[in-house]
Every structure is written in structure tokens, then in C-alpha cells.
Design a protein around this nucleic acid. Structure first.
Lengths: 189, 189
DNA sequence: CGCATGCGGTTGAGAGTTCAACCAGAGGGG
DNA sequence: CCCCTCTGGTTGAACTCTCAACCGCATGCG
């Protein structure tokens, strides 16, 4: 941890970009979260869980896989699934091959709630993001996102899922950034 | 509210960009938040409050201005300032011109805490964002951020700061996206 | 087999945010 | 002047997330 280096401060232009960027992202996520909370009675993070479940083989997934796929901690997912279970949208099942394991499964009511929420959410995403950008900007945004995401130190993410050691880990190079966006719901186009 | 329209779903390419983008932003903010929490014992939102205060005229600001400048609700700011006050980093003062008003003022200890936190934070931002992008990508990211930020429906942001009515409002077209980034702390370069 | 260790998942407490009241002071008529 | 309304700000409850501890099953090794 050699902190002896001189800090490389941001230039004025970089400060502008950073400020605008961080303000935009927090305003955007707040806006989407509010839309979902208002129209579908669920926070955005829960919506994402339902989406991932809806695309899984039997609409069920191991807790850990679900957590990894969504970049959230096991603890967070456990709390979230408890809430979703109370709402009747998800149910827990025992894992047949590993008695420690639990499966989170989307119920019919959960699927219906997702189907009801999806149009409003997708419309909000389109109107606030894609409708405001040129095709070229969208392309570059994809590049930028992938570059930044690929460079983040995995140790800085999800601390607490590795009680100790954690040596020689491979990083499970995210095969999950594709094919996720609409739920399996009326997905023509 | 004519919801009679057909939903315009996202194309496959758009889904990819959206998924990557939203995953990147949440991973990035989580990472920065963790860095600050670990090294400076404060969440990122509190750091931002200290930064804005450090740049204000006498290092003090009306609660409402601070909230508006930071895009947060009055309630959130009130709770946050209470915490910052307990930490000894901010103090509340009475407003001389309006007996309802309160000023939040940065203390010397708060300034010192900010000065101590800034290098680590700026380094994290540089390493996770700017070092990963070309100059051209940074430029486009600025464009994109401004375009999206400018288009967000102001009614979707900060609900609860307008008890009712809210008619004919002007939107206070953000003059605050400039000159904010480093605190007024060793800001050579 | 018996035991140490690692893995999957849960729990409870603490912290930050949101939402809906709520209060006091400011402003604007009648 | 009084009342009505709006504004600035606070409060408390409900909710989500984090962190650290914890439990039970799985696995490997002597």
C-alpha cells in the first residue's frame, strides 16, 4: 500500500465530466426507482431480481448464482428474497443436490407482477436514455461501460462474501451482461 | 396519462448497452463508496456535502441551497447534517435574514477530514474511470451525461419538496455542474 | 471414521434514504 | 390586523443495504 505517490488531481474539464456524469447517473437511477416504486410497488433492485429469475431455466436459481449474476451480496439477496416471498412473488425451495442450498423461484404472481411492471419501466428507460442519444453515442456508451466495468478491482466489490483467504481466485468473467433486459414477457422485437 | 401506446421494447443491442451501463454505474458507485467508507469513515453522499460546503463563500450554505445543489431531498439533507454534526464536521447556525432558515457550516475539523479524504477519492475516480478511457470517450461521456441529465423530467426527481401545486415552475437550469470536483484543498492542477 | 476447514445461506444490529406528517416563520390579501 | 397560504426545515416510522457473526452441511485429510 505505498501511498507515497503525488495525487493526480482532475483537470477542470475532467471535473466537469465527472460531476455531470455522477449527477446524471444518480438522477437517472433515482428516477427509474421512483417510477417502479410508484407504478409497481417495488424498488429497482427487486425488479432486477425478478427479471433474472424470469429468464432462468425453470424460473428458479440458486441463491448464490442469483447474487453473483446481479452483483449483490448474499446477505442483501437473502433479505430481498424474504421480502419478495412476503409479497408472494418468489418462493424458496430446497436444493435437491445440496442440502445447504436454497433455490429462489419466481411464482406465477411474481411473473404477472413483472409483466405488469415491464412496459412502464422499459418506456422510462427509453425516454430518459435512448431517446436522448444518437446511435453513435449509444455505441460509445456501450464501449465506455464495458471498459470501466472490466477494470474495476474485484476486491473492491462484494466484500464479505469471502470470510478470509480468497487467494488465487478466478473472476468468473461475467457472461451475464448479455441477454438480460426485457423479462421473458411479450418480448417481440 | 394515455397509456394506450404500444410499448417500444429495447432492441438486443440496446439491451446489451443498458445492462452493461447500469451494471457499470452501480459497481462504480459501490466501489467509490466502499473506498471512502473504509479510508475516511464517511459515505460518498456525505463527502459530496463536504465538498460543496468547502467551495461555498464562507464555507456555509442554507440547507435548501445545499439540498438543491446536491440534488437531494430536504429530509435527507437534514438527517445527513445531523450525522455530520455528531461527527463534528459541520455545524448548524441560525440564518440572520430568515428566522426559519438554518445554515450548514463546515468546521475546521470537517475541512481537515475532507482534505484527508480527497486524495484517495480522486485517485480512485481516476483509476477506475479516466485511466480506462480515451480522451475522445471522455468527451463523449460528457456529452451523453449532459444530454440525459437535461432531459430528465424534473417532476420525477425530488418528490416531496413540493407539498402541492408546483405550477409554472422554472427549473433552475443547473449552473452548478461546473467548478465542483476537488474540494478547495491543495487544488493545484 | 473423526475432525478441521470451507461453502451456502441466514440473522440482527446499525446506518442511510424515503415518505408523510408536522411546526414555525414569512408573505399576501381582505 | 387577522387569517390564509406557502416556504424552510425537522421528525419518526418504514424500508433497504451493509457488516459481522453465526449455523449447518460438504469436503478433504490424517
Amino acid at each position: 500500500m505505498g501511498m507515497a505517490e503525488e495525487t493526480r488531481w482532475l483537470s477542470g474539464a475532467e471535473q466537469d465530466v465527472w460531476r455531470t456524469f455522477i449527477t446524471m447517473t444518480s438522477a437517472l437511477t433515482d428516477s427509474l426507482d421512483r417510477q417502479l416504486q410508484r407504478d409497481a410497488k417495488m424498488p429497482y433492485t427487486y425488479y432486477e431480481i425478478l427479471v433474472v429469475l424470469s429468464e432462468a431455466p425453470r424460473r428458479e436459481l440458486r441463491m448464490s448464482e442469483l447474487a453473483g449474476l446481479r452483483g449483490s451480496s448474499r446477505s442483501r439477496l437473502s433479505h430481498a428474497v424474504s421480502r419478495l416471498e412476503e409479497a408472494g412473488w418468489v418462493e424458496r425451495r430446497e436444493c435437491p443436490t445440496d442440502k445447504r442450498g436454497q433455490l429462489a423461484a419466481l411464482t406465477d404472481a411474481g411473473f404477472a407482477a413483472l409483466a405488469a411492471a415491464a412496459p412502464g419501466h422499459v418506456t422510462a428507460v427509453r425516454e430518459s436514455l435512448f431517446d436522448r442519444l444518437t446511435a453513435e453515442q449509444v455505441r460509445v456508451l456501450g464501449e465506455i461501460s464495458a471498459a470501466v466495468l472490466g477494470g474495476l478491482d474485484p476486491d473492491m466489490l462484494l466484500p464479505g462474501n469471502h470470510p478470509r483467504d480468497c487467494g488465487g481466485g478466478h473472476v468468473a468473467d461475467s457472461p451475464h451482461t448479455a441477454e438480460v433486459g426485457q423479462p421473458e414477457v411479450g418480448a417481440d422485437t
